[in-house]
Amino acid sequence: MNYHFITIEGNIGAGKTTLSHLLAKKYNARLILEAFADNPFLSKFYENPKQYAFPLELFFMAERYKQLKELIHTKDLFQSVTVTDYLFTKCLLFAKVNLPEEEFRLYQKLFEIIHQQIPQPEILIYLHVPVNKLQSNIRKRNRPYEQSIPDEYLFKIQETYTNYIKQHNLKTLFVDASNADFLGNEKHLQVITDALEKDHDYGQRYLTLP
C-alpha cells in the first residue's frame, strides 16, 4: 500500500467515520476524526441556519486547521499512514451551501490563506450514497440535531461534492456506496483495500461494491 495520507469523504451519514476506523486498523494508521460534536454552533445551526451558519463554518475551519496542521509537526515512527474522515476543502464546500454570497466571499478569503498551509491527501475515497439511504443512516445513528435535515439540503451537499471532484484533478476512488456495509460484509472492505494497493492516475476511478 503506497499511500501515506488517505482521506475519506462523503455526505452527512455516508459512513466516512466507520470506513476510516476500519482502514486505520487495517494499516495500523494514525486516525484523525473530525470533532464535530465539539462545535457549539452545530445544534443551533440546524434550528436557525441563517443566524448561525457563519460562526458554525468558522469554528469548523479553525478546528480542522488545528488538527491537520499538527500532521506537519508530529511524525510517528510507528505509524507511517494517516487516515482522516474529512478533506480540508470540506470547509469551502459546506460554506458555499450554507452562507450568503457576501459572507461566503469573506470566508473564501480566509480559507485561501489557511489552505496553503495544510497537507493534501495522496488519495481521496469518496462515498456516494443516495439521499434516501443517507436519511436512513441519519435516523439510525440518532443524533437529535440531525433528525430534521431536509432532503434538499443533502442534495445540495451531494451536488457540491461531485462538482468539486469533477473539476479538480485529485486521485479519487469514487465509490457507489448505496448498499455499503463495511462492518458486516468483508467483501465491501476488500474492494477498497484492493484499490488502495494499486497505483492510480490523477482523476476518478469508479468502484462498485458486490
Rank of each mutant, 00 (worst) to 15 (best):
A177Q: 07
K133R: 15
Q147P: 08
L124A: 01
L106D: 10
I125F: 02
Y206E: 02
T193N: 08
K96G: 15
S136H: 15
D194P: 07
Y107R: 00
E159I: 10
Q116C: 00
H188E: 04
D201N: 06
T162H: 04
D201K: 12
V129M: 02
R105G: 02
I192E: 00
I165L: 15
E122Q: 14
T193A: 03
I157N: 03
N132S: 15
L207D: 03
A195V: 04
D151A: 15
P144Y: 08
I118F: 06
V191H: 01
L106A: 14
F104A: 08
I157R: 04
P100F: 02
T193V: 14
K109D: 13
R139I: 11
D201S: 13
D181G: 10
F111R: 09
Q120L: 14
K198R: 14
Q190R: 11
L154R: 10
L154G: 05
I118D: 09
F174P: 00
P150A: 14
Y206P: 01
I113T: 12
L183I: 09
E101P: 06
L134K: 07
Y145H: 14
I157F: 01
F111G: 11
H168S: 12
P130F: 01
E103F: 10
Y153Q: 11
I123K: 03
D194G: 00
I113S: 12
Q167A: 13
E152V: 09
Q120G: 02
K171P: 01
L173C: 06
Y153V: 12
R139K: 15
N137C: 03
D176S: 11
E197P: 03
D199E: 14
L127I: 07
E122I: 12
D201M: 06
G203A: 09
G203H: 06
Q120E: 15
R143D: 00
T162R: 05
P121C: 03
E152Q: 15
K140M: 13
H115A: 15
L127T: 03
D201R: 05
Y206G: 07
R141E: 08
E122Y: 07
V131H: 10
E102L: 14
K166F: 06
Y202C: 10
F174Y: 13
F182V: 04
I123C: 08
Q204E: 11
R105W: 09
E152Y: 08
I149S: 11
A95E: 01
I192F: 03
L110Y: 12
